[in-house]
Amino acid sequence: MTEISGGEFTQARETNLANSLSGKIAGVNATSLATGAGGSSRVVIRGNGSLSGDNQPLYVINGMPIDNSTPGGSPTTGGGGQNVDRGDGIGGINPDDIESISVLKGGTAAALYGSRAANGVILITTKKGAVKKGIGIEYNSTATIDQVVDYTNWQYQYGQGDGGVKPTSQAQAISWGRRSWGAKMDGQPYISFDGLQHPYSPQKNNISNFYNTGTTFSNTVAFSGGNETTSFRASLADIDNKSILPNSTFNRKVANLSLSSKIGQRITIDALAQYNLEKAHNRPSAGDAPGNPNWSNYMIANTVDVRSLSPGYDANGREIQWNETPYASNSYFVVNRYTNDDTKPFYRSVWHQI
């Protein structure tokens, strides 16, 4: 068993609490999908225990096991644009509300919680009120900036084309949309996928030209107080994210209330309630087929400016094709027309009588 304090999770804050476990506890590996601020996390304790089943641990918050599944199923399986990551259960916990996290590994966990704990247990205890004079106020604010870091150094000697030949027609340019095996770049005009002439020159900034600088602002305010018989803590958190992906946003509000009352010498009642409201616009797809907005940015021929694909659709609203297969989507079409919206309210409550 390993225990760490809640303060460890408010420094270099992650939007999904589970991602913060990586590197803090021996034997615990946490990885996130590249699906934005509202995405899910995969946590494995002491390696995979099954070749076919779910290897993630059981999460227990204040003594109550929670459902950590992803709505709509796994975002890494299925077909094309259906692979949208709508987040998991642990992602709805506000790090500022955590008192401590304990990790149970191996047989101990299974003995306490049964077969669901075969892959270990992560026990989370949230903060409560304390005896103090007056009302205590806590405020925590975090700002995070995200930028793309993979600027792969492609070859820029030979341009779009195949067999050492550059495109000479629009149809040929579309057919060779993902191929940079053409003639040597000479800066002369050539026919591109849009039927227009463009210079046969290297386009080295396609990644930075498409993605934005992402921002995440997290704010939590909490009030607490109490006396010898009754204590309370109430908090309200807001996470607002604008993704590096154009036209993609995420917002989560978390309200948490903890009450503790001592009745007589032998009875203590603890009550906890949490309400979450998530709103997401244009969550990115994790699949490798239609609906993935990253296709053209990394696969487009090296003499084509990715911005020439904008807005991604023609006057009739149809996707502008830039390569030989419809599976490699036009990124601008995905972010502008292949959109999705979801609202996820969530409520959790538990009370104990001791």
Rank of each mutant, 00 (worst) to 15 (best):
N294F: 08
D288F: 13
Q321M: 09
N294V: 12
A286D: 00
F333K: 02
K279G: 11
E319V: 13
N297Q: 13
K279T: 12
L272P: 00
I269N: 05
S331Q: 04
D305S: 03
K279A: 09
K262N: 09
A289Q: 08
I320L: 14
A315V: 10
V335P: 05
G312T: 09
D288M: 15
K262C: 05
K279L: 10
V304R: 02
T325M: 07
K279H: 12
Q265P: 02
Y275Q: 08
A286K: 08
G317R: 10
I300L: 11
K262A: 13
V334M: 01
L309A: 08
Y275D: 00
K262D: 14
N330Q: 10
Y313T: 06
D270E: 14
T303M: 03
N292T: 15
Q274H: 12
D314Q: 06
P326I: 10
A273G: 15
N330K: 05
N294M: 08
A289H: 06
H281Y: 02
P284E: 09
D270W: 00
D288K: 01
T268Q: 13
G317K: 11
I267Q: 11
E278Y: 07
G317E: 03
Q274G: 11
S308Y: 02
I320V: 07
S308V: 11
E319C: 06
G287L: 09
R318Y: 04
V335I: 14
E319M: 13
I300G: 00
G312M: 04
N302L: 08
L309N: 04
T325G: 04
A280S: 10
E278L: 14
N276H: 05
D270Y: 01
N330V: 12
S285C: 15
Y298S: 01
D314G: 06
G317P: 02
V334L: 04
N297K: 06
S285T: 14
A286G: 11
Y327C: 06
I300V: 10
P293I: 01
T303F: 04
G312P: 04
A273Q: 14
W322F: 09
R318C: 07
A271L: 14
